[in-house]
């Protein structure tokens, strides 16, 4: 075991997978010599050489489109999109192609690529560097969507994503990149996709969240006197409905926390599933603590946008006192 931050844990995952599977490639903007702008791919070029780790021209559609071709040809590309806000030129490739190759070819071809990208707000960055776009991917049939919350689950989830036979969008909360350090095994291990993690068990209320908001929720829990069950979704598609429903049936109360805009956010889907499978267990309407239906502001107002301890506490009180 070594103490790692999320950047180091992701780097370790890439190293493990590249060592054990020669078909794993890393490509993207500045992933080679520079080691990625957040250094997730640091030293991989040195260790694995320019045929397995390479910088591409500055073209996101090119990066994802090329990864599709590589994956159809037997490779496992792990493509980096430098910032979440820069992925959009690649949407045609992701939405019209990566997600559909298996279905379109009736299983003749598949597209086991991973697109990694720093995700979400909280570091007072420039415009287009703080978006939370997960719902768009979740709403695209054929894509799996993974968002880790800590160094430990980041590594295990990334290894699973690379081994997965289908395209996986892997969103790395940049606020957490260096904010949490914990023990992470240097050897390879997996955390299954499609499974949520119960971070803390409780009986009064369920909080469902993921990504950087897990840290915010944990901080809020220190100030909350109820018995809270905290669920870290880890994978947003496929969604672990079973864990959600079991928990809500037990507690009867639920708050969902995510930094993406409220309207049509993943919170809405979770509420729909609770309505379908656990409506009669509810003691109160489910509350959402989310970003607003606005562009995430630049640094001076960013904290007003992102869910915070105060808003989480308020939502918990509202649900408990319904």
């Amino acid at each position: 075991m070594t103490v790692m931050n999320m950047v180091e844990a992701l780097n370790s995952a890439l190293k493990n997978e590249m060592q054990s599977d020669k078909t794993v490639l890393v490509l993207g903007e500045d992933v080679g010599v520079d080691g990625g702008v957040f250094r997730v791919t640091n030293n991989l070029l040195k260790q694995f050489g320019p045929e397995r780790v390479f910088d591409t021209p500055l073209a996101e559609s090119g990066i994802v489109g090329t990864s599709i071709g590589l994956s159809v040809n037997g490779f496992k590309p792990v493509a980096e999109i430098q910032f979440d806000g820069f992925v959009h030129p690649a949407f045609d490739q992701l939405i019209s192609h990566a997600s559909r190759i298996r279905n379109r070819s009736r299983g003749r071809f598949s597209c086991p690529l991973v697109v990694r990208s720093p995700y979400g707000g909280g570091i007072k960055a420039l415009e287009h560097h703080s978006e939370a776009m997960e719902t768009v991917y979740v709403h695209t049939p054929g894509l799996k969507v993974v968002i880790p919350s800590s160094p430990y689950n980041a590594k295990g989830l990334l290894i699973s994503a690379i081994r997965d036979p289908d395209p996986v969008i892997f969103l790395e909360p940049k606020k957490v990149y260096r904010a949490i350090k914990e023990e992470v095994p240097e050897k390879s291990y997996t955390i299954p996709l499609g499974k949520a993690n119960i971070v803390q068990e409780g009986s009064d209320l369920t909080i469902i969240s993921f990504g950087s908001m897990i840290k915010t929720c944990k901080e809020a829990l220190e100030q909350i006197n109820y018995s809270i069950e905290l669920i870290d979704l880890q994978t947003l598609y496929p969604l672990d409905t079973e864990t959600i429903i079991n928990s809500v049936q037990k507690t009867g109360r639920c708050v969902i926390v995510h930094e993406a805009p409220k309207t049509a956010g993943i919170g809405a889907e979770i509420i729909a599933r609770i309505n379908e499978k656990a409506l009669l267990s509810l003691e109160a309407p489910v509350e959402r603590v989310t970003g607003f239906d606005t562009i995430i502001p630049l640094g001076k107002r960013e904290d007003d946008y992102l869910p915070n301890i105060k808003r989480i506490k308020k939502a918990v009180e509202k649900v408990m006192n319904f």
Partner: peptide, 10 residues
């Protein structure tokens, strides 16, 4: 372009 030299861009 950040770290990528002109020769590798085109």
């Amino acid at each position: 372009a950040i770290s990528v030299p002109r020769s590798l861009q085109s």
